[in-house]
């Protein structure tokens, strides 16, 4: 005959600790997922400090300068093209010529040293991305970069998760727009009826046979 060695509240302790353990594990998992999706990790909506506080809101929305004026290679190359100091100075040799905010640009123009901007969108190096093909197939700037024309300071609009890329590669008709509207930040492709968007997908020869979701499409 063996003696009981558990005190009377042992059952309650087991009860509470198992419950606590479940909640703790669940909480940790939820917190990790939350952190992973949060701007703290993804940088979405968090502007970075730049040498010049450039405002897309001012230049794109108020001054109505076309995206391509500065990002000139977006239709021709994988890289959208970052404006050179020369591009900034093609206006700022005339306007705001004494602004202290533009001192780094003037210094760069004088000395030839580049202005060191901080990259906002940094895809992993194992992902191949080409701006020109997206623009040519009628995917607007705003589809990925959000309403960047409303951003005073530039920040990421998308965390660039792979599932998000695939969402569009599976259903391009959700984001396709007429080529004329690619650089129009105010245009919303969903204002077009679905049939028209499907027709656009067809006429722009966007593959719908599953090729777009092939691993090799982006990981090459």
């Amino acid at each position: 005959m063996s003696a009981q060695i558990f005190p009377r509240n042992a059952n309650a302790i087991v009860w509470v600790s198992i419950l606590g353990l479940v909640l703790l594990v669940g909480g940790i998992v939820a917190a990790l997922v939350g952190l992973y999706l949060s701007p703290w990790f993804t940088d979405v909506g968090v502007p970075k400090a730049q040498p010049v506080p450039f405002s897309h809101k001012h230049h794109v929305d108020q001054l109505m300068i076309d995206c391509r004026y500065c990002h000139a290679t977006v239709e021709r190359a994988a890289h959208a093209g970052f404006p050179s100091t020369d591009t900034c100075m093609s206006c700022h040799s005339q306007v705001w010529t004494n602004s202290p905010l533009l001192q780094p640009v003037r210094d760069s123009y004088r000395t030839g040293d580049p202005v060191v901007w901080r990259r906002i969108y940094d895809l992993p190096d194992f992902v191949y991305f080409n701006h020109s093909v997206h623009v040519a197939k009628g995917i607007g700037c705003a589809s990925c970069h959000g309403r960047i024309d409303q951003q005073q300071l530039t920040a990421k609009a998308q965390p660039l998760f792979m599932g998000w890329c695939l969402g569009c590669h599976r259903n391009p008709e959700d984001n396709v727009r007429p080529r004329d509207e690619v650089f129009n930040m105010r245009f919303d492709p969903l204002t077009l009826p679905l049939e028209e968007r499907v027709k656009l997908v067809e006429s722009y020869q966007i593959p719908t046979d599953g090729r777009l979701t092939n691993c090799y499409t982006c990981h090459r």
């Binding site: 701007p39 979405v44 909506g45 809101k57 959000g146 309403r147 409303q150 951003q151 005073q152 920040a155 990421k156 609009a157």
Partner: peptide, 8 residues
């Protein structure tokens, strides 16, 4: 969307 910091 948190990127819409400004009321358009």
């Amino acid at each position: 969307d948190p990127t819409y910091a400004v009321d358009v």
